[in-house]
Nucleic acid binder design. Structure first.
Lengths: 151, 151
DNA sequence: TTTAGAATTAGAATGATTCTAATTGCATTA
DNA sequence: TAATGCAATTAGAATCATTCTAATTCTAAA
């Protein structure tokens, strides 16, 4: 064991600002902020590669490993959500409002849909007594408005 | 181009029986039947490796490639469903009744939960007019009864 | 300033799945 | 019954997304 007590986490100063959200926090380093900003200004649920491409326009030397690292930290902190709609690449989303994902099987686009105000999902399924629910992932697959019209 | 017309698909004879379900069909070869039977008698949503293990007790020489191949054919035919609860291995399920998956984040077990009789999922989300829904994937994550009790 | 820990990086390693090419099996046609 | 041709099966290679590793750089507190 090391005799010295663990140092307290660094406090926000200059660029090293933090955001406390949902009881967790992250050091918002420049790269993490860029990744977050890219995601916050996207509505298309980009993959890690998509995010790499977009962040590169501001930070040409950022690596894929860093993008994955940033995404993990932001996800752990609850600032963004990882979305697994199908096997293969994960997608990411900065919309923290309760919502479901609509996936168009024709054009591949993913969009958010928001529930009606009175929707209480848990009560519709007969879960055994004592079950605790922490989150729900709802994905709706089909054909979007545009693709339906084109047909 | 080959001058001969394509041969009509083989008809059911002996082992080469088919099942027509949801407008599609599969040749139910011995391996496909074994994979299907394993799945139909499992409630734990096994992965491809799990299925390989179980089928091996009857067909010791079956390969992982064949298991994947069978799973793909059975999925395409609508006899089973692929379930993607998190990144990594896909799981498979032969329960074709409308249901949602409950995933215990403590013990990792996956179980089915069935909706209340009057549940009409589509009407709860404000999807753009013209959107066509073909299927919904609903995953509920949390702590199962047993793990909650142990705590 | 020094220093310890965290962030970043490139590239290797991993894990799950898909692809490829060769072989085998089965059912129709000769 | 034998020949034929497609589908099924196989082992192993290839691929893809992600995670890991080890080295380097950065940041902020001492």
């Amino acid at each position: 064991m090391n005799a010295s007590a663990p140092r307290a986490p660094a406090k926000p100063t200059g660029l090293d600002c933090r955001l406390a959200v949902l009881g967790s926090d992250v050091r918002l380093t420049p790269h993490r902020r860029e990744v977050f900003d890219v995601l916050a200004s996207s509505t298309d649920h980009p993959t890690a590669y998509d995010i790499l491409d977009r962040v590169k326009s501001r930070s040409p030397h950022i690596s894929l490993a860093t993008v994955y690292n940033c995404l993990e930290h932001l996800t752990t902190a609850g600032l963004i959500k990882q979305v697994q709609l199908e096997r293969g690449q994960s997608r990411y989303c900065a919309n923290l409002h309760e919502h479901v994902h609509f996936h168009c099987e024709t054009c591949g686009k993913v969009s958010d849909a928001h529930p009606a105000a009175d929707f209480d999902p848990a009560k519709f399924w007969n879960l055994p007594k004592g079950t605790k629910v922490t989150r729900m992932d709802i994905a709706i697959h089909g054909t979007c408005e545009a693709c339906t019209a084109k047909h």
